[in-house]
């Protein structure tokens, strides 16, 4: 299955204005960047605010939104903020055309994909000083929803996605792949009997 954050899109539907979406991103309330928010209910609330048919609580739970690590939870919360209001919410509610429509399931699923952007772009930079990072975040969200910014052709949007932060993103994704290999090595080594034998211990802390 292709990943819209790493693979080219075959097709996209024209969506909202890029600058309007960046404006929404930068207006994110601090609450959405707090680490102690429960991601599952927040995503459901955002989907309800977007006015699309909400995902059931069970569906949200099944996706394990609450089990995500903090960087991905924060990413998810940014995505939830973005879809909960204009300019995306009216579009998601009314369907952008070309046969595309959204429901709670598909929006929640798209947000989960969007959270994967934390692997490639550290979350603290999403709303930082760098305008190119803002554009990258907004374009990533468009991609997971199958959209492209208003006024751009599919080809232009694809080219722009590759151009925006492409080198840094590739390096970060290589780092993420290395981390994944390391996590697998750690799990394997910890499961070995040699690791279980452990070492003599002297105190009870």
């Amino acid at each position: 299955m292709s990943d819209p954050l790493t693979d080219p899109l075959d097709h996209s539907v024209e969506g909202p204005d890029l600058q309007a979406m960046i404006g929404r991103l930068l207006a994110i309330p601090p609450d959405f960047l707090a680490g102690d928010v429960e991601a599952g209910p927040l995503v459901n609330d955002a989907v309800r605010l977007a006015g699309v048919r909400p995902a059931g609580d069970e569906a949200v739970r099944a996706r394990g939104l609450g089990e995500l690590a903090l960087p991905e939870r924060l990413a998810l919360q940014v995505g939830a903020w973005m879809v909960a209001g204009p300019p995306l919410a009216p579009l998601l509610r009314t369907a952008p055309g070309e046969g595309r429509s959204y429901d709670g399931e598909s929006v929640a699923s798209a947000l989960l994909s969007f959270a994967g952007l934390a692997d490639a772009v550290p979350v603290a930079r999403w709303t930082g000083e760098d305008p190119e990072r803002h554009e990258e975040v907004v374009r990533a969200l468009c991609r997971v929803l199958g959209l492209r910014p208003r006024g751009e052709t599919h080809g232009v949007a694809e080219d722009r996605w590759v151009a925006v932060g492409s080198a840094a993103r590739r390096a970060a994704l290589r780092a993420a792949a290395e981390e994944q290999r390391k996590a697998e090595e750690l799990a394997r080594r910890l499961a070995e009997k040699r690791a279980q034998e452990a070492a003599a211990q002297y105190t009870h802390v």
């Binding site: 924060l74 996590a183 750690l186």
Partner: peptide, 30 residues
Amino acid sequence: PFYRRLGVDRWEQLPTISRADLARAVADFV
């Protein structure tokens, strides 16, 4: 990995972490 994905670069930006974070994916902190 946890901090690379978070993107913090100063002590003052560090969130607290808990046992639940380690239980979720201890490799995130190795």
